[in-house]
């Protein structure tokens, strides 16, 4: 697959939140206001892009040559946990403003399904190094898109009259359902129509 096709696939066609449900916990938990949603989205994008490349390298250079493919789950989660720590340290050192914006979200990302998910999807799809990077980037961007849209909806919902039982999380799920319906408009035929496959 070309890089543009990968970008379109992971941002729209199989959007991580609205189609594959990876990273639902922060999607519901951190989407109450748009500022923190954007921060979370950027932090996730940052980590998925780097983690895709690093896990690809670990798999192809360390695990595959020694026939240790079955250890990928253990290896990936450790690599991701270590990576998040390193990213946190580096950002704190070189860019304090960025750290201020992303800092509180970074520790949460280790247990975000989206990061381990993209690492495993990259391996399952046999992506190369560059393709993995762009898949990670696109997955993060898709996550950011969904969570920012969601936070804007929820800010408006706070002012809307909602039945007591549906207030808060339930109505958020229903809104996400409508967004997912809209995202169903993007499907695999889009790639064919754009002559990318």
């Amino acid at each position: 697959m070309s890089i543009i096709a990968i970008l379109i696939t992971y941002i729209f066609i199989s959007n991580f939140i609205l189609v594959q449900f990876l990273g639902m916990c922060p999607f519901i938990g951190v989407s109450k206001n748009s500022e923190s949603a954007l921060g979370m989205g950027m932090a996730v994008t940052f980590v998925t892009s780097i983690a895709s490349v690093v896990t690809w390298a670990v798999y192809t250079l360390l695990l595959a040559p020694f026939g240790l493919e079955y250890l990928r789950t253990v290896a990936f989660i450790l690599v991701i946990a270590a990576l998040v720590q390193v990213v946190e340290l580096v950002i704190r050192k070189i860019s304090p403003p960025l750290y201020k914006a992303l800092g509180i979200y970074l520790p949460l990302i280790t247990t975000n399904c989206a990061v381990l998910g993209i690492a495993i999807i990259n391996i399952d799809q046999d992506y190369g190094c560059l393709q993995s990077f762009f898949a990670g980037l696109a997955a993060g961007l898709g996550f950011t898109l969904a969570i920012v849209l969601m936070s804007n909806i929820r800010e408006k919902l706070d002012l809307a009259p909602v039945r007591k039982s549906f207030k808060g999380v339930p109505i958020a799920f229903i809104s996400a359902c409508l967004m997912a319906l809209a995202f169903m408009a993007f499907d695999k035929s889009l790639l064919t129509n754009l002559h990318l496959v």
Binding site: A172, A176, F183
Partner: peptide, 10 residues
Amino acid sequence: APGALLVMGC
């Protein structure tokens, strides 16, 4: 996909 979110919300 949308059905999952709808059912969960309800």
